[in-house]
Amino acid sequence: MVKAIRVHKTGGPEVLQLEDVTLPAPGPGQLLIRNRAIGLNFIDTYFRTGLYPAPQMPFTPGNESAGDVLAVGEGVSEFKPGDRIACVAGLGAYAEERIVPAAAAVALPDAVSYEAAASMMLKGLTAEYLLHRTYKVKPGDTILVHAAAGGTGTILCQWGKALGATVIGTAGSKEKADLAKAHSADHVILYGEENVAARVKEITGGQGCDVVYDGVGKDTFMASLDSLKPFGLLASFGNASGAVDGVNLGILASKGSLYVTRPTLNTHTAKRETMVEMAKNLFGAVSSGKVTVAINARFPLAEAAAAHRALESRGTTGSTVIIP
């Protein structure tokens, strides 16, 4: 028996219940891993509330974790018991132990800690595809990063700066603005006090940005479009303020022949070789010091509900991990 968080009905943080569960032996192509750290992400709240439907009820939330291989199933040759690994898999991370497809795991270098890996697999791989695949950032580009003090935001700012871009961030408080600047943002706009698009135009001399990375969604959608230069790209990759809906495609024409995309990590990591390449790129950026992962809060597994409350109240900065 191992401890795991279970959700029997969708709702608020109170539906996250700590229970005893029994795991089977890993099947063909699977790994049994002992979690050492679990990542906390907004997508976890989407499944908890029912915004994203879980494949079955009850379920254990969470996608990313890092730990040690305890056992391998038939046909697994890439990993062995005792290996350090990190993974972004289906639901099931909020647990002391979990079973994951070997194809969803990557070897974890000694230079990267369990906590750093667990807190950056989803966020860091998201940043990897946004910066290198959705829009390939190059020296001289200007990028706008919403929620620049958050887990994904701090990685985007640092990595974008390392790629040679001018980085503009948005934040909700002076403290968060300072954190974003500490993570390489050249300019930070306080969205509660300033008009984001107007400030972007000031900063860029009226040009606008080449790309906007927007994980906030509904509240920032129009400001994101208005911050782009003609032919600019809006990469909308999250819904922290709610989903964007009712879009009139004509506004993309009137605002400068703009592009909008809604990419997902699952699509990018569907091919094993692509996922391994992305992880190597991410771990290389961390090992070299181009990207540092700020872990600013830790919650025991039993306090997963408190972790969700902190995340949803915008009370967190950087990354938060759950410790089983």
Rank of each mutant, 00 (worst) to 15 (best):
K3F: 03
I5E: 00
R6T: 12
H8N: 15
K9S: 13
T10K: 04
G11M: 01
G12S: 15
G12M: 09
P13C: 08
E19D: 08
D20E: 15
D20G: 07
V21K: 00
L23F: 04
L23A: 03
P24T: 09
G27W: 04
P28T: 11
G29W: 10
L32P: 04
L32W: 11
R34L: 11
A37T: 08
I38Y: 01
G39Y: 14
I43R: 05
D44W: 09
T45H: 06
Y46K: 00
Y46A: 00
L51K: 04
L51W: 03
P55H: 07
G62K: 02
G62P: 06
N63M: 12
E64V: 00
V69N: 02
V69E: 07
V69S: 04
V72F: 11
V72M: 10
G73K: 00
E74N: 13
V76G: 08
E78P: 10
P81M: 12
P81T: 13
D83C: 01
I85S: 08
C87G: 00
C87D: 06
A89Y: 03
A93M: 01
A93L: 03
Y94P: 02
A95Y: 03
A105G: 00
V106K: 10
A107T: 14
A111E: 14
A116N: 15
S119L: 08
L122M: 11
A127W: 06
Y129S: 02
T134A: 15
P139W: 05
D141C: 12
T142Q: 13
H146Q: 07
A148W: 01
A149I: 07
G150Q: 09
T154D: 04
I155R: 01
I155Q: 01
I155G: 02
K161I: 06
G172D: 06
S173F: 02
A177V: 07
D178Y: 02
L179I: 14
K181M: 12
A182S: 15
A185N: 10
A185P: 09
H187L: 05
G192L: 10
A197E: 09
A197T: 12
E202Y: 13
G208C: 08
C209I: 00
V211G: 08
V212A: 11
V212S: 08
V216P: 06
F221L: 13
L228Q: 03
L228E: 02
L234I: 09
A235F: 04
F237T: 08
S241Q: 10
G246Q: 12
I251F: 04
L252G: 01
P263W: 01
T264R: 00
N266M: 12
T269Y: 05
T269H: 05
E273G: 13
T274E: 14
T274V: 15
V276F: 11
E277L: 11
M278G: 11
M278L: 13
K290E: 14
K290S: 10
V291L: 10
V293D: 10
N296E: 15
A297N: 10
R298D: 06
F299S: 02
L301R: 01
E303S: 15
H308K: 04
R309C: 01
A310I: 08
A310T: 11
L311Q: 03
E312F: 07
S313K: 14
R314D: 13
R314W: 11
T317Y: 05
G318V: 07
I322L: 13
I323Q: 14
